[in-house]
Each structure stands twice: as C-alpha cells, then as structure tokens.
C-alpha cells in the first residue's frame, strides 16, 4: 500500500470509528482496532494504544454535539471520570504485560460478545 493510500485508508477508518462513536456514545475503538490490525498492519498492542489516541478527538466532538443539546449529566461524568483516571494506567500496564496471542484472543472474544449485544438490543 502506498503511503497516500494508507493515509486515506486511515482517515476512512477514523471516519467509521467516529460515526459509530457519535451514534452510540462510545469511542469507536471496537471498529478501529480490527481495521488497524487487518489493513494497516499494526500489532495488536499498537492498535489498542493508537485507537485510544484517535478516540480523544472523536469524544471531544461527540461530547460537544451532545452537550450543546443539553444531553450531559455532569455529576455522573465527574464521579465516573475519577474512577476511570485510576483504572486507565492499570489497564495499560496489564495490556503491556500480555503476549500478542493472548491479547488477540481476549479482544476477539470481547468484540464478538459486544457485537452480539449490539444485534440484540
């Protein structure tokens, strides 16, 4: 893949992640991680970390859109965020300690379950 093709591809993957993220109020990582692995050739570890970086602008734009419609509960957000800020560094450490194979199996199993739940609801 030429670098121009790869750049367009990455923008397209981000677009899909953002579309899902804005639609469901999630980050969109569940779509971006597999596409990074399949086509951009990222390792599983790199795909997780890079997806997380792309989630930041997605969440900023999404939160601004929902916020301007008055659809944010600040109290719940603050308390949740205090918890996530403690959990995130530990989750990153746990990921770093896993082998590529184990991480792929866990991520794959997780996405199958989430996909099934999305179909269900």
């Amino acid at each position: 893949m030429t670098s121009a093709t790869k750049r367009s591809y990455l923008i397209g993957v981000g677009f899909l992640g953002g579309l899902l993220g804005g639609l469901l109020g999630v980050g969109g990582g569940i779509v971006m991680v597999p596409l990074l692995v399949f086509v951009a050739g990222s390792s599983q570890h790199e795909a997780h970390a890079t997806s997380l970086a792309a989630i930041i602008p997605i969440a900023v734009v999404g939160a601004a859109r929902f916020g301007s419609a008055g659809e944010i509960d600040i109290t719940a957000a603050v308390v949740l965020a205090v918890g996530t800020l403690v959990g995130a560094p530990l989750g990153a450490r746990a990921m770093a300690g896993m082998s590529e194979g184990t991480l792929k199996i866990l991520f794959g199993a997780l996405t199958v379950v989430i996909g099934a739940l999305m179909l269900w609801s």
Binding site: V26, I30, V33, H48, T50, I55, T84, G87, L90, G91
Partner: peptide, 14 residues
C-alpha cells in the same frame, strides 16, 4: 471502565 478502556483501546462507552 478505565481499566477496560486502556487495555482494549476502546472508549468504554459500551
């Protein structure tokens, strides 16, 4: 959610 998010590279909104 924070642990899950950093480990799997997702937002955790799920």
């Amino acid at each position: 959610v924070g642990f899950f998010s950093a480990m799997f590279g997702v937002g955790g909104g799920v």
